[in-house]
Design a protein around this nucleic acid. Sequence first.
DNA 1: GGCTTTCGCTACGAGCCGTAGCGTAACTGG
DNA 2: CCAGTTACGCTACGGCTCGTAGCGAAAGCC
Lengths: 212, 212
Amino acid sequence: MTSAGTPAHGTRHGRTGRPRSAEADRAILDATRDALVELGWSKLTLGDVAARAGVAKTTLYRRWAGKNELVVDAVAALFDEHLELPDRGGLQADVEGVVRQFAALLERPETKTALMAVVAESTRDPALRERIRTAIVDRQKALVLLGRERAQARGELPVETDPAAAARTADLIFDVIAGAVVHRTLVSAEPVDGAWARSFAALLVGGLTAGA
Amino acid sequence: MTSAGTPAHGTRHGRTGRPRSAEADRAILDATRDALVELGWSKLTLGDVAARAGVAKTTLYRRWAGKNELVVDAVAALFDEHLELPDRGGLQADVEGVVRQFAALLERPETKTALMAVVAESTRDPALRERIRTAIVDRQKALVLLGRERAQARGELPVETDPAAAARTADLIFDVIAGAVVHRTLVSAEPVDGAWARSFAALLVGGLTAGA
DNA sequence: GGCTTTCGCTACGAGCCGTAGCGTAACTGG
DNA sequence: CCAGTTACGCTACGGCTCGTAGCGAAAGCC
């Protein structure tokens, strides 16, 4: 819904006039991902994207405010397609699964070069940060919340009664999981293999169940 | 040593001729940090930095290959000045301390906008990644190694006999700590306050001591 | 058929990049 | 002290990207 074509604000079509080509949206986002793979974030230009998409540069500017917004949407589509949380039967296995899924996304050259770049930009652009949050971050966080519910249903995690405290804990877990995977992949530049995912999941689950 | 003025490779001065002005190095790096604060990463231009530093643009290009390298050095100097690990008497307190120190660095507008930007660039530039590693990452990792040694001396952590396994564990801890702080600060865009640092440290220490 | 909006196209000023070329300044070795 | 070497400030330049404007044509709604 949110990620796919939908341009900047709320898609203020008046209901009259020539409608925007949905195929152009698709072509532009595809071209953006291709350009990210070939050129990387810094050398990607909107003129090049337009040419790849077979679309006039002006068309691109009518839908997206700039490079940042375009790339967020292009990358968010990948998160939509590849993030899910099948029940693997236990908390540690669920953590391992989500870690490997997220890592697989980050190993892609498109996301590798783009994700941290737009996050860096978002530190000076609240609107962009909000766009990243709704298009990418909230989807990831939903997996954390789902995983916790399951773990609580299994009796692996205690149920926190105070909703504020529960929210803080969920945020903490989210930052630890996502942060560790991002740091491992982009800063340490080491692959997230099975052994690492297992060690990390064991560490996290151990920490979560130690206090209880 | 590494971070301060020293330009790109090994500073190939022949021993003759006019020496490079050390003051110019300082002025350029200061100007770079100022420009980062005022303009942010994306709007920072080398021409502007040169003007601020009172230096010709050509001088700047003689010492640094480009924006990426310059900013890495400018930011690395901050890490040199503000990262240390006083013995706080216990593992959890040590973790809390390093978390708050790193968070304080990341709250600065210079580092906030610059650090992830150069990391994003480094995904397509091995030389840049190496520069980041030696100038920033290795310094952080040294704190982790020191903290572990102390904890082992106190008997809070087991001594791993296999050196390869010990290295893997240290890397894991490092990615978890640094990653969580970065993610909290830049992606979630929430402050690392005392409560968060305490919760995180408790989670990590709990996980590290759970298996033993 | 008239109204509205999007489309592709071309063209443009503006800004930044990275380099070249020059004359001058600073330091070293003979 | 002088010749050699290197860094410096300054100016100028071609090349690229940006983001916008203006046009006629196309594609829908009433």
